[in-house]
Design a binder for these strands. Structure first.
Length: 308
DNA sequence: ATCCAGGACTCAA
DNA sequence: TTGAGTCATGGA
């Protein structure tokens, strides 16, 4: 029965408009659709399918937030048949928008800062838009290694179209990123034909196999105790380097101190913000970020957003 | 053709 | 641990 809905309270400050502004940055996004002041997405009713609780359904939801006080979530087609599934959807959306983050310290740090103050004010209420699904986060990061963003979006869309489930609603298709089980036994040539390099293809298949075997999971990484340990585990996988690992820490594991320092987008944003005639060096980035210790991920995200 | 893009790997010091 | 050189691919 479509039309059922629920609300999710948000911590202040929160700006849904700022979040949508970030999410709408590319017309090539394939996993959700921003329509004016709402977003529509096919959401899996549980994380970690590799943990072995059988097939889990997905539900098409529309999210609005008229007053920035709470997210208003409506099921557009089916609705969850159990409280457990409903909780899965809720958990996903809380992670997606980082709803449980206490932003107080960030705003204390950034408000009077010579570099970040301006961005923090301009993007007031923007949260790091997360990628709650570990496999999606890994594949998105791997796809984005050393290629321009539009091409990365195309690669992701090809994975979703080729291997992911989809539903149709009001003439539009909505896709969900494939589960690792869909790619665990794929052939490298198969992905190369989608224009992934050999190395990226191998990494995507290898991580899928690890996850399908239960040897890699979001819960497992978080259970390692600290994010450095999670990063070490990720970097141990061929094709995953420090940038990808920190990207996943930032957008999937929800570590506010993650710092993808080698990121060229970050470097270009810093260059523009500081009016430099070249990209900053690693040492310069470390110095610049020193005042934002513990919130490097948020500083990075706000700098990314400044590029658009 | 040449350079850039939200890097990773290898190998040397 | 850090730095240069190499690889890889599409787009401008």
């Amino acid at each position: 029965m479509p039309g059922s809905s629920f609300e999710l309270a948000v911590r202040q400050p929160f700006s849904f408009a700022r979040c949508l502004e970030y999410m709408a940055r590319s017309p090539l996004e394939s996993l959700y659709e921003v329509r004016g002041s709402s977003v529509i997405r096919l959401v899996r009713a549980a994380q970690e399918p590799e943990q072995g609780y059988g097939p889990v359904r997905s539900y098409l939801v529309e999210i609005t937030c008229p007053d920035d006080e709470a997210l208003y979530v409506r099921f557009l087609q089916d609705e969850p048949g159990s409280g457990q599934e409903l909780e899965g959807v809720k958990r996903y959306i809380r992670e997606w928008f980082d709803l449980d983050r206490d932003m107080k310290h960030w705003h204390q740090l950034s408000s009077g800062d010579p570099v970040m103050g301006k961005l923090a004010a301009e993007f007031y209420g923007l949260r790091i838009i997360g990628i709650p699904d570990l496999y999606e986060a890994l594949c998105w990061a791997i796809a984005g290694q050393q290629v321009n963003l539009p091409f990365a979006y195309k690669l992701k869309a090809r994975l979703a179209e080729t291997y992911g489930e989809s539903v149709s609603w009001e003439g539009c298709d909505y896709r969900r990123f494939p589960d690792p089980s869909a790619l665990a036994e794929a052939d490298i040539a198969e992905l190369q034909s989608l224009q992934f390099t050999r190395a990226k293809s191998a990494a995507i298949i290898e991580t899928a196999a690890l996850m399908t075997r239960g040897e890699l999971s979001r819960a497992g990484l978080l259970a390692l105790g600290d994010f450095a340990a999670a990063e070490k585990a990720l970097v141990g996988i061929r094709g995953i380097g420090p940038w990808t690992a920190n990207y996943v820490r930032m957008r999937c594991l929800r570590d506010p101190g993650a710092f993808p320092i080698g990121d060229v987008g970050l470097q270009n944003a810093v260059r523009a913000q500081l009016g430099m005639d070249r990209k900053p060096t690693t040492a310069e980035l470390k110095d610049l970020f020193a005042p934002w210790s513990g919130w490097e991920a948020y500083a990075t995200f706000y700098l990314w957003h400044s590029l658009y």
